[in-house]
Simulated assay, not measured.
Amino acid sequence: MNSNEVRRQWAERTGEYSPEYYAYYGPDERSESVRDLLERFVDPEASVLELGCSSGRHLAHLYDHGFENLTGIDVNDDAFDVMEETYPDLAAAGTFYNDTIEGVVGDFDDDRFDVVYSVETLQHLHPDVEWVLEDISRITDDLLITVENEGDDETAHSESADPDVSYVNDDFPLYHRDWNRVFTELGLLEVDVEVGDRDTVRAFRTSQE
């Protein structure tokens, strides 16, 4: 499966793992993990970007807890229609891009956002577009958060340059990466990590201050 096929899967997705699916379930423990880290490291006025925001359940959770300078990117054409129906206050207050991550972040200035985060989105990034990870680091002024499935211990500590791949329901691929290694090699400092049953939550800062 190439990067175009992966993008098309998510751009056209309906049913399970679609914007409607995530809006139905609403904010969850991953939303709380992101909020806890933001409250720990930045002020409520911080500018925040979510990579792969879907219909906005995590951003809506932040908005409800006082974070209002919010931006999201999602490739699915239905995401923002569902957001307007489910989280109208967020839809009105935020700035949103209906595009791929790699189609947007290269246009942002250096240090554009105080916070950039991803919840189970970077794990779908095809190796062909890994170059965008450097841009993600570049546009982050303070805090970067990854909430991603990194695979098993063997995968996480693999020295291979290529990510390990698994498939959900024999359908779409998950590319398991060691996000500590990825972003520390790009100059960020890991300041927090929590390993869960499925996802690993990591927080990186651009400096030690």
Rank of each mutant, 00 (worst) to 15 (best):
H58N: 14
A60Q: 14
R57A: 14
L59K: 08
H65E: 06
H65Y: 12
A60Y: 08
E50P: 08
L70T: 09
R57I: 13
L59W: 05
L59T: 10
Y63D: 09
A79C: 07
D64V: 00
G52F: 00
L70K: 10
D74W: 00
N76V: 03
T71K: 06
L49I: 09
E68V: 13
F80Y: 12
G72V: 05
S47W: 11
D64I: 02
H58R: 04
S55N: 05
N69K: 09
A79V: 05
L70A: 12
L51V: 11
I73D: 03
E68Y: 10
A60E: 14
S54D: 01
H65F: 10
E50R: 09
Y63F: 15
V75F: 12
D78M: 13
D64P: 03
C53A: 11
G66I: 01
G66E: 05
L70Q: 05
F67C: 11
G72L: 02
H58G: 04
E50F: 01
G72F: 02
G52D: 01
G66M: 06
A79T: 13
L62G: 04
G72P: 13
D64W: 06
N69R: 13
F80D: 00
I73M: 09
S47E: 14
D64Y: 04
L70H: 04
H61N: 15
S47Y: 07
V75K: 06
L70Y: 04
H61M: 07
G52Q: 04
A60S: 14
L62V: 11
L49P: 10
D64N: 13
H58I: 15
F80W: 11
G72S: 11
C53W: 00
V48I: 15
D78V: 11
F67A: 12
D64C: 03
G66P: 09
R57L: 12
L49K: 11
S54K: 02
A79R: 12
F80T: 01
I73C: 08
D77G: 13
C53G: 05
F67I: 08
S55E: 02
T71G: 04
V48A: 08
T71Y: 15
